[in-house]
């Protein structure tokens, strides 16, 4: 318990249990984990009231290290498990951590349907453009012409844009940040947890060991520099023409909308009405 005196955030880690983490040196997932912890700490939510759900992959190892109610599920299904938890305990905060493969390839269906329902789940999508756990295969976000072990001559798969996908499917809060922009990451995750309804924060992260090595990034620092150079704020993005936009991506808060009903609220209302109707029918 000495560690708690060092930093308030240490209380959120299962320090005695499974450290050090499985993540490689220079990996960006740890930074996202700290962003989540900072967000939760600032919001002052009890650890008992948070369920952190993940699927399979590097990022999905996160639940093992943090001291919430944690659930490490099957590949791509974290949101579906989270949906069940939220339906039974609408008062609890469900945070889903997912990678780009986990969240948008195998779990793409659950992702868009959770956004469509607008169920109150906060999804943190850690996008490092590659399958890390399995050793560097092409993912649905790998940029065109980038290299991966299953795209040895350059990827020909057009990548997904997670922000557009979530927005199109009806999410209530959509934001994108990078690991270079750590303060914003934490701010957006905080907002995502606060916002009722489905929220998605995409964090562009770095995988120096696989994506970096295959695509001629010499160090994690170089990858962070790449993030700084290619991430453009929304304001700037709007002023840019097509040519200037090539290869770059906007960061910021794209959607923050409270107009749609949250799913468990809608369910509670429907359930209340149905009970009233039955009661009235009995009395009549």
């Amino acid at each position: 318990m000495e560690l708690e005196t060092i930093s308030p955030y240490h209380g959120y880690l299962r320090m005695k249990k499974k450290f050090p983490t499985v993540w490689c040196a220079g990996c960006g997932i740890g930074a996202v984990m700290s962003a989540i912890i900072r967000a939760v700490h600032e919001l002052g939510i009890s650890k008992n009231n948070i369920v952190l759900v993940s699927g399979i992959g590097c990022s999905s190892r996160m639940p093992i290290y943090v001291d919430f109610n944690t659930l490490h599920t099957t590949h791509g299904r974290a949101i579906a498990f989270g949906t069940g938890i939220k339906m039974v305990r609408p008062d609890m905060k469900v945070i889903v951590v997912s990678g780009d493969g986990d969240g948008m390839a195998i779990g793409g269906n659950h992702f868009i349907h959770a956004a469509r329902r607008n169920i109150d789940i906060s999804m943190v999508l850690i996008n490092n453009y590659i399958y890390g756990m399995t050793g560097g295969q092409v993912s649905p976000t790998t940029p065109l012409k980038s290299f991966a072990y299953t795209a040895p001559y350059g990827s020909i798969d057009p990548p997904f844009d997670a922000v557009k996908l979530a927005s199109g499917a009806g999410a209530s809060y959509v934001a994108r940040s990078t690991n270079y922009h750590a303060v914003q990451t934490s701010k957006y995750i905080k907002r995502a947890i606060e916002r009722k309804g489905f929220s998605m924060v995409e964090v562009i992260s770095q995988c120096p060991v696989l994506y970096g090595r295959l695509n001629k990034f010499r160090s994690p620092v170089e990858m962070l520099k790449w993030q700084r150079e290619h991430a453009v704020t929304m304001k700037k993005w709007d002023k840019m023409n097509e040519e200037e936009r090539t290869g770059k991506f906007p960061i910021g808060e794209f959607i923050d909308d409270d107009s749609r009903a949250e799913y468990t609220d809608a369910y509670a209302e429907m359930s209340h009405k149905a009970r009233e109707e039955v009661r009235n029918a009995k009395n009549a």
């Binding site: 369920v51 759900v53 659930l71 599920t73 099957t74 299904r77 579906a80 498990f81 989270g82 949906t83 069940g84 938890i85 939220k86 339906m87 039974v88 305990r89 609890m92 269906n109 659950h110 349907h113 369910y267």
Partner: peptide, 19 residues
């Protein structure tokens, strides 16, 4: 809840049971 597929259905009830 009517889920988007059977994979999601069993996932949701496992989550619900844990809750």
């Amino acid at each position: 809840i009517q889920m988007e597929d059977e994979i999601g259905s069993i996932a949701a009830i496992i989550g619900g049971s844990l809750a």
